[in-house]
């Protein structure tokens, strides 16, 4: 009787461990499978979009679009990197990681290497606080950045590498719910920067690019909507972004565009007053989130 007991003592924990690990590894896909629904022509439509999600652009690309439209560098309009340590929740750290990514991109594209370095440190610090430290730990991105300060092309490649590693780590750590939060932080910061520069130096191209940025808003809110149950701070942000969408949809030029399916963003031109309404709303969201630490 003793031998089977020894045998069981050895076998039971290992089988339980194996079964648990296997279940953990496959659970995400099983959930997706259970939520698929069948439509009329034997095509299955993916209704559980948690696994698929959407795609959101890189903060560097948003900054590059503004830069190519003539957006100038103005010191003092980016967020304070010194405040990085005051963010205390996963949400605010993820949000500020996005904010500092946008500030870093703005500085890199305008050859402001010293503040860019400061923002890189802030991005790394926020990443480490939310279990994304491997972005920098597994690669030499941080050192490469510091070794290429005079080379804008290299710095842009490194920023693209940071975005790629961030995407990979979010997936690997099962933290995809932060994907939309990080990007929303970067996006609002980019619009804040563009708005501030526009207020001081009105430029029609910047105005049009700011207006065009609104096309991304729906994708951001969809991404946040999918994940709002995973962090209670997502819902208030979502409400703020939905109110920005309402302001945008209420603009006369947007109504005109929506009433005519043949018209696209390139076919309508917002007035300065309309743009100022958007900027005002962006500032409202920006200041609210900045004080959220």
């Amino acid at each position: 009787m003793k031998l089977p007991q020894v045998f069981l003592k050895l076998l039971t924990p290992t089988l339980v461990l194996g079964a648990l690990v296997f279940q953990t590894s496959c659970s995400g896909d099983s959930e997706t499978a259970s939520n698929d629904t069948l439509t009329g022509d034997s095509v299955i439509t993916e209704t559980d979009i948690e696994d698929e999600g959407g795609m959101l652009p890189s903060p560097l690309q948003v900054a590059a679009i503004f830069k190519s439209s003539g957006l100038k560098y103005l010191p003092g309009i980016t967020s304070s990197a010194e405040k990085a340590s005051s963010y205390s929740t996963t949400f605010t750290r993820a949000w500020s990681m996005g904010v500092y990514s946008a500030d870093m991109a703005y500085c890199v594209l305008n050859k402001q290497t010293q503040p860019a370095q400061t923002y890189l440190k802030a991005v790394r610090s926020q990443a480490e606080q939310i279990n994304l430290g491997k972005i920098f730990a597994q690669t030499s991105l941080f050192d490469r950045f510091n070794n290429n300060l005079g080379n804008e092309d290299s710095l842009q490649s490194i920023l693209a590498g940071i975005k790629e590693e961030t995407d990979a780590q979010l997936l690997s750590n099962d933290q995809n719910h932060l994907y939309g939060v990080i990007f929303a932080g970067a996006w609002i910061e980019s619009l804040h920067i563009a708005g501030k520069v526009y207020e001081q130096e009105p430029n029609e191209q910047v105005m049009l690019k700011l207006f065009e940025q609104m096309v991304i808003l729906e994708s951001i809110t969809k991404e946040l909507e999918r994940n709002k149950s995973k962090d209670e701070s997502i819902a208030p942000l979502l409400a703020d972004l939905n109110s920005l969408q309402d302001v945008f949809n209420g603009l006369a030029s947007v109504k005109k565009m929506n009433e005519n399916p043949d018209l696209g963003f390139g076919d309508v031109k917002p007035t300065k007053e309309e743009l100022m309404m958007l900027i005002k709303k962006v500032e409202e969201i920006h200041s609210k989130t900045v004080t959220k630490a």
Binding site: S42, I44, E46, D51, E52, M55, Q61, A160, E164, D167
Partner: peptide, 18 residues
Amino acid sequence: KYDSGKVTRVLYKPKAQL
């Protein structure tokens, strides 16, 4: 330049999927 990426996990089932 890398902008964004997605890894889609594919599980084959008795019915086709989209």
